[in-house]
Design a protein around this nucleic acid. Structure first.
Lengths: 213, 213
DNA sequence: ACCTGAACACCGTTCAAGT
DNA sequence: ACCTGAACACCGTTCAAGT
């Protein structure tokens, strides 16, 4: 006695719900089938296998995010605002981050900010390879930051020996080095520093920079 | 007929070998037992369970890395050299990156560069919260970069629609935006930009910076 | 203290068979 | 075209039992 015909969309919907509850590891084909009231094997007919199911979920979530809109007046400020926007969107979908990592689809997370970054980087006066590199730099920065951030949130116990290490440097120890380090603040300051560096670097570009080695 | 007594170290050694071959997903308690010529359950006596086994492997690998030594003359150049060194060490241990992510121990990868970064950031004239933030910024930058880099290497097929997106921005399209983007070059330039930004930011610090919002 | 086999409760996937 | 149950080849972990 089959229920109303099972659709691919229905499968994706139920899978999304499972992943949102306890992460992608808890998404098993058998639990999904139970949730849908079908045989496990029906799912295979609609979505192939577990891997392509996860891929489809990633694609869905990325599309659902839409493009990120800049705000602010200076080019630097606008680029920073896009970085903040992307981080906010990604952090609002923690399951996405986990799925993406399980499937090796990291660069999908670049997409929502890509067009805007290209535009803003051009507006800031960068062109060609330098513009492309600036866009990539910001994308890596934001996505990398979110990956690290999420991963350490998952295991909140450790944050190991931080104060020990500061203390080991006893000669130059500094009480203000204490710790917690507001991650929002750290993020914004890092992005600002990066963007400043990328844009001012543009000025003195051709002559090859002050770094040896 | 038990073989020569099984030791915890022997277990860790064999586990490391398995992980190095095909990544942490291929490390199963049963394969490990087969490799060691013991019953699966013996392993549990020595290392607890699979999770604590992975934790032990992470710890081992981090210790094996040792501290990262700076080179270069200016403070900025020395910080950049530490970032490059940390990336090189981490990339030399791809299995570590995967294990760390599976176990949520990201911040362990900060450690090999921590003391050196504290020292160099102080040498660059930063103090207190500003110094701590600079260290964190570089650690997040390097580890985040490596996570993204490794993850996209795992699934080399896609790198999706990059040129499409550049083209969509047709008005400001730029042939040099083409693509491959040497990851080594991107990394070094990003870190330089970040470090420049962090250090020059120090000068104009107190007055609150040019960014609204 | 250390090791064992049997058993439990899971997995993803395939396949021949149904309608 | 869509769905099914049975079966295969795996998992991690527990536990009572051995030495």
């Amino acid at each position: 006695m089959p229920r109303t015909a099972l659709t691919r969309d229905e499968v994706l919907e139920a899978a999304t719900a499972l992943v949102k509850q306890h992460g992608p590891a808890s998404l098993t084909m058998r639990k999904l089938a139970a949730e849908l009231g079908t045989a496990v094997t029906s799912i295979y007919w609609h979505v192939g296998n577990r891997e392509s199911l996860l891929d489809a979920l990633v694609e869905r979530t990325i599309e659902e995010m839409g493009a990120i809109r800049p705000s602010g007046r200076t080019p630097a400020a606008r680029i920073v605002s896009v970085a903040r926007g992307l981080r906010r969107e990604l952090r609002g979908r923690p399951h996405l981050i986990a799925m993406v990592h399980e499937r090796g689809l990291t660069e999908r997370m670049f997409l929502p900010a890509q067009q805007t970054l290209v535009h803003e980087v051009h507006a800031a006066g960068l062109r060609g390879a330098r513009a492309a590199e600036a866009v990539r730099a910001v994308q890596f920065q934001v996505v990398g930051y979110v990956l690290v951030e999420r991963n350490r949130e998952r295991a909140p116990v450790q944050h190991p020996g931080e104060e020990d290490l500061w203390d080991a440097e006893s000669a130059e120890h500094d009480p203000a080095l204490a710790r917690p380090a507001d991650p929002e603040r750290l993020f914004v300051n890092s992005v600002r520093a990066l963007v400043d560096g990328l844009l001012t670097r543009a000025d003195r570009a051709v002559s090859g920079g002050p770094y040896p080695q």
